[in-house]
């Protein structure tokens, strides 16, 4: 099957620049890049770099939020490694990500595909999917605390009526993280759905119908046309949702306040607890720094691997 290679071939047919213009062009390009980037660069420098450097500095300091910080060497890091709870939180965070990211991405992609075929009604259905995004966290917490309450939950009565033992969602250690993942998938679906639909929309029907005329099956169309063409969207969503998922924090706070059991804690929950409840900004920053390194590694791998599967039009 050669359709995707055809797409590449047609895109690769770029006119070649004469060589002597190259260096002049480079200089002009640098200036142009600076101009286009400048507003965001101002924002980056003023609002981001400072606080990030400060957090990095704190990772190697003792600081309780007041007064002067003192140099701590690596003691914040050794403190973290000696704390068995951090290990548990790291496992919980990874477990949450493993459940949530593929869960929401696959569901959103499938729904986006189906919605493509729903014609005018798409607008109505999509409103339903986006509703969780605009539902306030208070209402989210109230309704899910109710759905997770084994005494009164309709989910549990439904399960019991078909003979499945109903779990105690937020108390049973095995179910806490999956419960959070369910809420996160429910709330994140609308956003990813819209992103995927925007991506699919921009492919245009032409490519797919062209593939159809070439005699491709539905599966071949999906795998060889649709997926390559929206691969930039997939890359974007997978990188940003892994980063977001590794930083999950608010669900635990909303459902369990500041005394969540070990089985429910995630890394950023620990960071916030350490910083603002225990006044240990050094250890909190050290943990954030470790999280940063992990995310940088994961994202770096994704960026490096993209050449193999992400298809840009150029």
């Amino acid at each position: 099957m050669s359709l995707d290679t055809q797409i590449r071939a047609s895109a690769d047919a770029v006119p070649v620049q004469p060589r002597r213009k190259v260096s002049r062009r480079h200089r002009k390009d640098a200036i142009a890049a600076l101009v286009f980037l400048s507003p965001q660069l101002v924002g980056l420098i003023v609002f981001m770099i400072g606080p990030l450097v400060f957090a990095l500095y704190l990772a190697f300091s003792h600081w309780d939020g007041f007064g002067a910080a003192t140099f701590a060497g690596l003691s914040n890091f050794t403190e973290l490694f000696e704390n068995p709870r951090i290990q548990r939180s790291a496992i919980n965070t990874v477990w949450f990500t493993v459940l949530q990211v593929p869960g929401v991405m696959i569901t959103a992609f499938l729904f986006a595909l189906f919605m493509q075929k729903a014609g005018k009604m798409t607008n109505v259905y999509r409103l339903g999917f986006v509703a969780p995004v605009v539902t306030s966290s208070v209402a989210v917490a109230t309704i899910w605390l109710y759905l997770f309450n084994p005494e009164i939950s309709p989910i549990n009565s439904a399960l019991r009526s078909v003979g499945i033992p109903a779990p105690n969602w937020l108390q049973d250690p095995a179910f806490i993280i999956p419960s959070f993942a369910v809420v996160a998938i429910w709330q994140g679906l609308g956003y990813q759905l819209v992103m995927f639909m925007a991506g699919l929309q921009s492919i245009g029907a032409s490519y797919l119908e062209a593939a159809e005329l070439d005699g491709c099956s539905a599966w071949q169309k999906l795998w060889h046309v649709t997926v390559p063409l929206i691969s930039p969207t997939i890359l974007f969503l997978s990188i940003t949702s892994i980063i977001g998922s590794f930083q999950v924090f608010d669900y635990i706070y909303v459902f369990m306040d500041s005394s969540a059991p070990d089985e429910a804690r995630t890394i950023v929950y620990e960071i916030v607890q350490m910083a603002f409840r225990e006044f240990n900004f050094g250890a909190a920053s050290a943990l954030a720094f470790l999280l940063f390194l992990v995310l940088l590694g994961v994202t770096g791998l994704q960026m490096a691997a993209q050449k193999r599967w992400v298809h840009y039009a150029e």
Binding site: L44, M48, P51, L52, F54, A55, T240, I243, Q247, F249, V268, I271, V272, A275, F276, A284, S285, A288, L291, F292, L295, L296, T299
Partner: peptide
């Protein structure tokens, strides 16, 4: 910049 939790900064 997305990888450092906002609470900390």
């Amino acid at each position: 910049t997305m990888m450092i939790p906002a609470q900390l900064t």
